Amino acid sequence: MNRYSVFSFVFLSIFLFLFSLMINGVSFNSFGRFIIILMIASPLLGLLSGLKGQRNFAKWTLITLNFIALCTISFLLLLGLGMGEA
């Protein structure tokens, strides 16, 4: 794995760690906005660093996983900010 793939994996791991904390109900108190912004930025940065990696199976796996993570947090934010039931 080259360094861009490692960066992509680290950003995906950060997202998964914060997402699991959010699902388990951990209160972030005054850091809530920062954590949400970090949860949006980490898959986006992972996607961009994954695109710079070498062309192999790990590159496309990390790009796919970061894209799924980005779509997941975007959908949850849309639900939370009012796209829910009318």
Rank of each mutant, 00 (worst) to 15 (best):
S8T: 06
N24L: 15
S74M: 04
L44R: 00
R55I: 09
S27A: 12
E85C: 02
I23K: 10
L45A: 14
F31P: 01
T64E: 00
I40W: 03
S49H: 00
G46W: 00
N56E: 11
L18Y: 06
A86T: 07
G80I: 02
I14D: 00
E85N: 12
L38D: 06
A86R: 14
G25Q: 08
I63E: 05
T64S: 15
M39L: 02
L79I: 04
F15R: 05
S30E: 11
I37L: 09
I14H: 02
L47K: 01
S5Y: 03
F19M: 10
G82P: 05
L79P: 00
L44T: 09
L16Q: 11
L12Q: 12
A69N: 06
M1A: 14
A69R: 02
I40K: 04
L44S: 08
M39E: 00
F67A: 15
L62A: 01
Y4R: 08
F19V: 00
L51E: 08
N24A: 14
I35V: 14
S30V: 08
M22S: 14
L51W: 05
A58M: 13
S20D: 11
N2E: 13
G80M: 04
R3V: 15
I35P: 01
I14L: 10
V6S: 08
K59Q: 14
F9L: 09
L16F: 01
S30W: 05
I23C: 05
G53K: 01
G82F: 10
V6C: 05
A41M: 12
I40Q: 03
G82C: 07
Q54G: 11
T72W: 11
L51V: 09
R3S: 10
L38T: 09
L16T: 04
L47Y: 04
I73M: 03
F7E: 15
I23Y: 05
A86S: 12
L44D: 03
F34A: 15
K52E: 10
S30I: 11
T72M: 13
V6Q: 11
L12M: 07
L45R: 04
L81T: 14
A86G: 13
L44Y: 09
I37V: 10
